[in-house]
Amino acid sequence: MSATSEIVAPADATSLVNVNMSNVTKLTSTNFLMWKRQVHALCNGYDLAGYLDGSTAAPEATLTTDGVSSANPAYKHWQRQDQLLLSSLLGAISLSVQPLLSKANTCAEIWTTLTTTYAQPSRGNILQLREQLKQWKKGTKSIEEYYLGFTTRFDKLALLDSPIPHEDQLDYILNGLPEDYKQVVDQIVGRDTPPSLLVLHEKFINQELKIQTLLTASSSSLPASANFVSHKGNNNRNQSQSRSNHNSQQQRQFTPRSVSRGSHGRGYQGRCQICGVHGHSARWCS
């Protein structure tokens, strides 16, 4: 199957471009940095990035020639292109974020509102993010979720002009790991040069797979052990029951005759005058 490609023509004074943002990850309250980079790169590829940052300003709406005003075709073109791009932008923004943009009428207004909301430097926001880095532990999270929790916050701090140095990023990530990852942590700490976050992520993924393999092997052997314990317990119960039955038989076997006779209503009969045995009278010895 041959790959398909799209030929992109740069925008000019006469053409209109409908930018397809279906492959752009929708903007949420936590991924603005990556969303911004993705959207800006796409629009820049179409030579439309100026509509986002406002550098492609709107022309005058009307032209005046010899005292006569008329509509400016350049403004009409700009307006149409801006609205096409605005529609594409809204399609790449999640429903939870769209209410923030209810008063934005141009692409530049959307871009400014989002940047002010999610990328405005604030000391309180910076301190909160740094505190979240300290408290973020793996616990029961997957290694993917754990790693993403750090990188997302690193990106936010960089966007707020408060980046975390690379070695400090490694320290944050390594300090939140449980004992199962000690082998990987020791390897990283023992290196002369700190690895990239991508290398670190790969090592964590491999270690997680090892841990899952060991847990699977351990759980698969558990039923056999349980059956052995259960079988042993049944044998012990059977042996105890057998001994109990045996003792009962012995007790019945060695029950004194006097008790047996007593159960028939004879009771104790004194001492026999003939044989001298206690328990019956001379008439039972005849």
Rank of each mutant, 00 (worst) to 15 (best):
N18I: 03
G54S: 02
S286N: 09
P99C: 04
L214S: 09
T28Q: 10
L133K: 04
S142F: 06
P195Y: 13
N206I: 03
R266N: 02
R80Q: 14
A49C: 07
R243E: 10
G267S: 01
N238F: 12
L157A: 08
H77M: 03
D161N: 10
R283G: 02
V17T: 03
N175I: 01
S122N: 11
H278G: 06
N238R: 15
N105S: 14
G279Y: 09
L33I: 09
M21C: 13
V277M: 05
A9M: 11
I173W: 07
N72E: 02
L89P: 11
T113W: 08
L89W: 04
T4I: 07
Q250F: 00
V39D: 06
Q212M: 15
P195Q: 09
S70G: 10
S248F: 05
L27E: 00
C43L: 14
L177C: 08
I143Q: 05
W284Y: 11
I188R: 05
D155I: 02
N31P: 06
L174Q: 11
N31L: 03
A74F: 01
R37N: 13
N20M: 09
K26T: 08
A61V: 07
Y118V: 12
Q132S: 13
A61R: 14
L48W: 05
E109T: 04
Q241L: 15
T106Q: 05
A74C: 05
Y147F: 15
K210L: 14
R271T: 15
R243F: 13
L52R: 04
S96T: 09
Y51W: 10
I211L: 15
R80Y: 08
Q273M: 01
W78E: 03
Q169T: 14
R191V: 02
R271I: 05
H40P: 01
D171N: 13
S87H: 09
W78S: 03
K138P: 02
N234F: 05
